[in-house]
């Protein structure tokens, strides 16, 4: 009897390990972040119910308010720039690579190499290359006669964030190129041929055939980029420290959250503010969730069939 029942309901046993793992170590922590944000905390001990007090603190009270909006604007700039680079340069390269000329495979492979590096290595590598006195980058500028451009790229508020964004793009770009290329390869060749036979120019074919068909992949890539850029942490932590030096000019939501949650406990400073940190995490969750849901909706609405 029991055996029969078990064979009939085998799917329950198949599902169980995965559900437990995913439920306990992913869904539960994410869901309780919300709960955590609604309480006062004294170190690691939960205090009285706080309502939306923690959110109010983050959004309206100093010093959190200035830090939060500052970090948010940096994240937005981070995403917008990365998006702009990948959908112009990245997309153009993918379209070009589709032609499969001699040597393109080689270039593809090469562009993707930085993506295999860990963020920690990327951060340290560029930290040394951009070192104001000894770094190879400034020495290179001097070598090619651009000595007047030499500056402490990571040390001044005007250039630090842009430098971080470009270093991130350097590591990242190979990935969207490959994703776009994979998407392009999924578009039937006949459609391009038909457009050419109909007398469309290269640009027209791209604009009216390739682009609409590739839109889902571009959209998906944009959402993924958004999620990753709103999660960015390592690069700034490694290169500029947990407070986004200089003067918080490279501070991101990720570093702000880290500082608030775990304090400077690693360097013997203040302990973390769990309630406020959870409020920051929930706000990030809301931003990421809203953008991805809206993005996916938009894409489904515009889905083109072929």
């Amino acid at each position: 009897m029991v055996r029969r029942w078990m064979e009939r309901h085998a799917y329950i046993f198949f599902l169980l390990p995965g559900l437990v793992l995913y439920g306990v170590f992913m869904v539960y922590p994410l869901a309780s972040s919300l709960g955590y944000s609604l309480f006062h905390w004294d170190g690691l001990i939960r205090g009285p119910f706080a309502g939306l007090e923690n959110f109010k603190t983050v959004l309206t009270r100093s010093p959190y308010q200035a830090r939060f909006w500052g970090a948010l604007s940096h994240n937005v700039l981070f995403f917008v720039t990365t998006f702009a680079i990948q959908t112009t340069l990245g997309l153009a390269l993918a379209v070009l690579f589709r032609k499969k000329w001699r040597g393109f495979g080689f270039f593809q492979t090469v562009y993707f190499i930085p993506y295999t590096l860990s963020m920690v290595v990327v951060g340290f590598l560029w930290l040394l290359l951009l070192n104001p006195t000894w770094g190879a980058f400034n020495q290179f500028l001097r070598l090619i006669g651009l000595g007047s451009w030499v500056q402490p790229w990571l040390g001044q508020t005007e250039t630090a964030l842009w430098t971080i964004i470009l270093v991130n793009a350097w590591r990242w770009l190979g990935f969207p190129i490959l994703v776009f290329l994979a998407g392009l390869q999924g578009i039937p060749e006949e459609l391009h041929e038909a457009a050419t036979v109909d007398g469309a120019t290269g640009w027209q074919t791209f604009r009216h055939v390739t682009l609409p068909l590739l839109a889902p992949v571009i959209g998906m890539m944009t959402i993924l980029t958004f999620i990753w850029d709103f999660n960015a942490f390592e690069l700034v932590f490694i290169m500029q420290g947990s407070s986004g030096n200089p003067y918080y000019s490279t501070d991101l939501l990720g570093t702000l959250f880290y500082r608030t949650a775990f304090g400077d406990s690693t360097t013997g400073g203040e302990p973390g503010q769990i309630g406020i940190a959870s409020a920051i995490a929930v706000l990030m969750l809301i931003i990421i969730g809203a953008v991805s849901i809206l993005g996916v909706r938009q894409m489904q609405k515009r889905q083109v069939e072929y």
């Binding site: 992913m26 539960y28 922590p29 869901a31 972040s33 959402i223 940190a277 990421i288 969730g289 849901i293």
Partner: peptide
């Protein structure tokens, strides 16, 4: 779509 990092606390 949801990064597990946000539940790290």
């Amino acid at each position: 779509m949801i990064p597990i990092r946000l539940g790290v606390l």
